[in-house]
């Protein structure tokens, strides 16, 4: 087996999601090569070379890959893919955008968001918002895979000493151009990497009221999450949505405040180790899977929680 793993990064640092994908790759077994495609991203390649289990790093450093445009990245990956049995990446918005394109260019299927490796060609993945788990077998010579990072421990970031080789290649489709981005800056831990997440739903009522949640988050060193209803209503930005079609989190502690517990929300957080629900409706479905439920008005509970933590 010869695995090509696509690094997730922002051109300056390796995203820890990559380390979860490395664990999945290690379970498949064989030689592991990491491809770092970006612009001015030598640092990322150096970081990737140190990850335990990595035997080689390929660095494609070119302006065409600066913004992770799927057209350019997929052309690069499909070209580099020759000789590899698996092409694997952490499931992120970049890889979800790019990997199916790679699969189509190689005329193979894709296995999206695997949560377990059974063998080199058999994997488990959630379907129906996690209400069923499918065991699937790839029939293709090359297996294109994205990995649900919450389901795999992170490989050690240090301990490896892989060599870095340069891929001199520029694939610019010219048909897609980056215009601008609004990236949300926050001093809080990143949602998918945090050990404590506190999420707010429609019950919060307004963007201003999210401050109540932030105060508690500050005490706990927690990341902030949200339900779709809270994002749709404009209380918080889209990158905080937890669920079937948002972020998948599995922290040590997940606190759901003013969230009813729709299956689409549960799909994104039900693997959390300890779940707390705070809701004024004692019939709210979220209580059916909460380890600790507190029936009460969040506008009373949150300030009290902040004061007592």
């Amino acid at each position: 087996m010869n695995i090509l793993l696509i690094a997730e990064h922002d051109n300056s640092a390796l995203n820890p999601a990559t380390l979860s994908a490395v664990s999945a790759a290690t379970q498949i077994g064989g030689e592991l090569t990491v491809l770092v495609a970006g612009a001015d991203c030598q640092n990322v390649a150096d970081e990737a070379a140190k990850v335990s289990g990595v035997s080689k790093v390929l660095l494609a450093d070119n302006a065409a890959y600066a913004k992770g445009l799927a057209e350019n990245l997929s052309a690069l990956i499909a070209e580099v893919a020759t000789g590899y049995s698996h092409i694997i990446a952490a499931a992120s918005s970049t890889s979800k955008d790019t990997m199916p394109r790679v699969a189509a260019l190689l005329d193979v299927g894709q296995l999206s968001e695997i949560i377990a490796v059974e063998s080199a060609d058999i994997f488990k993945r959630p379907i129906y918002a996690g209400n069923a788990i499918a065991t699937v077998q790839s029939q293709d010579a090359v297996k294109v895979i994205t990995v649900r990072t919450s389901a795999f421990d992170k490989a050690a970031a240090e301990g490896g000493c892989a060599g870095v080789e340069t891929v001199a290649n520029s694939r610019d489709s010219g048909t897609s151009n980056f215009v601008n981005e609004e990236l949300v800056k926050s001093d809080r831990p990143e949602l998918t990497a945090a050990s404590v997440v506190i999420s707010g739903g429609r019950g919060l009522g307004s963007a201003e009221n999210f401050a109540l949640l932030e105060n508690v988050a500050d005490k706990l060193g927690a990341a902030i999450g949200a339900s779709r209803a809270a994002v749709d209503a404009g209380f918080v930005s889209n990158d905080l949505q937890v669920g079937q079609t948002g972020k998948i989190v599995a922290p040590e502690l997940y606190i759901a405040v003013g969230i009813s517990g729709a299956i689409q929300h549960l799909a994104g957080m039900k693997e959390s180790k300890v779940i707390v629900a705070i809701n004024k409706d004692e019939e709210a479905p979220i209580f059916q899977l909460a380890d600790y439920g507190l029936v009460g008005d969040l506008f009373k509970v949150l300030p009290e929680l902040e004061a007592k933590l």
Binding site: G109, N131, F287, A290, D291, Y292, L294, V301
Partner: peptide, 24 residues
Amino acid sequence: QHITQLKVETPAQREAGIKVDSVD
């Protein structure tokens, strides 16, 4: 056919927890 579905299972269910009556 590129991918064969071998089986489909119900995920492990979480056991319902308890209700607490105060922030303390």
